[in-house]
Simulated scan of single mutants.
Amino acid sequence: MLQKTYDWMMEKAAHRHAVWWLAFISFIESSVFPIPPDLMLIPMVLAAPTRWFRLAMVCTLSSVVGGYLGYAIGYYFMDSIGAAILAALHLTEKFDAFKPLVDEYGVWVIIVKGATPIPYKLITIAAGAFHFDLAHFSFASFIARGMRFFLVAVLLWRFGPPIRVFVERRLKLVTTALVVLMVAGVAVLKFL
C-alpha cells in the first residue's frame, strides 16, 4: 500500500497543479497521512530550482495549518480518533513517552521533534491531547517545519540533483544535525 501511495505522490509532483497537491499532502501529513511531503518537495524543487523558496513556504504553511487539525484531534477526540490514528501508525508507545518531554521542555521539544523525521502527526495530536498552549504550539510548529522544509529546499537548490540521493537517504541525519547545532547555539548564547 505504501508503494502505491508513494507512486501516487510522485505522479502528483509532476501534475500541472503540483503546488496545490504539495499543500494538500503537507496539510494531511500533519494529522493522518503516513508519508512525509518531502517526497513531493524534492522532485518539485529539482524541476524548478528558482521556486525553492515558494515551495518550501507552501510546504511549511500547509503543514502548520494541518497541525491544527492534528491538535484538534488530540484535544477533542483523543480517546477515539487520535488513539486510532496513533495505533494505525504504530505510534502509541511514542505518544506515551512524549508527555514527560512536553511537560519538561515544552516549546523546545516540539521544535526539535517537529524538525526531524519523527512523524509530525504524533507531535500535533499529542500537543492537543496534553492541552499544550496553542500559541506556543503555533510558534514551535512554524519554526520546526520551516527548518525542515527550507533545509531540504536550500540543499536541493544549491547542489541540485547530486544531493537528492543524500537528502532522501540521510534526511534524518541532516535534520538532526541541524537541530543539534541550533540547540548548541542557543546553549552557548544562554551561558555567555
Rank of each mutant, 00 (worst) to 15 (best):
A83C: 03
A127G: 09
E29D: 14
V152R: 00
T176D: 03
L181S: 12
K172H: 10
A84I: 04
S31V: 08
M44D: 03
W20V: 06
V188I: 15
V165Q: 04
A97V: 02
P34A: 05
A129W: 11
L178I: 13
L155E: 04
K4L: 14
R170F: 11
L2F: 10
V19N: 03
R170I: 01
G146P: 05
L173N: 08
D133F: 10
F191D: 13
S141V: 09
V64H: 07
A177E: 11
G66H: 02
I143W: 03
G66D: 07
T92I: 13
K190C: 07
F159Q: 00
L101R: 00
S31N: 12
M1E: 10
K99Q: 11
L41M: 10
W21F: 10
L22N: 09
T176I: 09
V179M: 11
G67E: 12
G114L: 02
W157A: 13
L39W: 05
A88F: 11
L173T: 14
L189V: 06
T5H: 02
E93L: 02
M147R: 01
W20T: 04
Y68Q: 08
V183R: 08
L155F: 14
P100K: 04
L156M: 11
Y6H: 10
G128D: 13
L134N: 02
L156W: 00
W108S: 05
F24P: 01
G114F: 04
A56M: 12
F24K: 07
T5C: 06
M147E: 01
M57Q: 06
L39Q: 08
I110G: 07
F33P: 04
L91E: 03
S80H: 08
A87L: 10
G82C: 05
L22F: 02
I123D: 05
F130C: 06
M1H: 08
F149P: 05
S141T: 14
M1F: 09
F53H: 09
A140C: 12
A48R: 14
M182T: 15
Y71Q: 09
H136C: 01
A140M: 12
P37M: 15
T50E: 11
M147V: 06
I111S: 03
M9C: 10
A184N: 07
V174R: 00
I25M: 12
F159E: 01
L41V: 09
M9W: 03
P100R: 02
S26I: 07
I143D: 04
H90F: 07
